[in-house]
Design a protein around this nucleic acid. Sequence first.
DNA 1: AACGTGACAAGGC
DNA 2: AGCCTTGCCACGT
Length: 116
Amino acid sequence: MKPDIKKTHPNYQRIYKVIGQIPYGSVATYGQIARLAGLPGQARMVGYALHSSPDRLELPWHRVINSQGTISFPKAEVAYDVQRSLLEAEGIIFKNDRVNLRRYQWNPEDIDWNFL
DNA sequence: AACGTGACAAGGC
DNA sequence: AGCCTTGCCACGT
């Protein structure tokens, strides 16, 4: 049973708000999300927060990748293919299982903290 | 209440 | 390019 956002840790709530604002066709890294959420150096928390995020939020989880520009799921797992397909459907190109961050990485002008 | 575990990142070889 | 180590902190035993 996944928690409602109001019951999640305050840090998680900020993480969810940031992730929810990644635009179609762009990607963000775990570390970037952490910094934008005011939690520099806590990239791992972003992954953990996503893992236990309330389904109801319908976050664009697939737009979050690691600092190497690759998908963090093992290639053997179904989730890998799901995420990759979702990204490719948004026009994102993979080359050697990697996306070009300089081309696709989100660079927000500001974060709406009232989002969600 | 200690301990191990992450959908990570950065730095050192 | 890889592989290893350390920092990070919320969560579930």
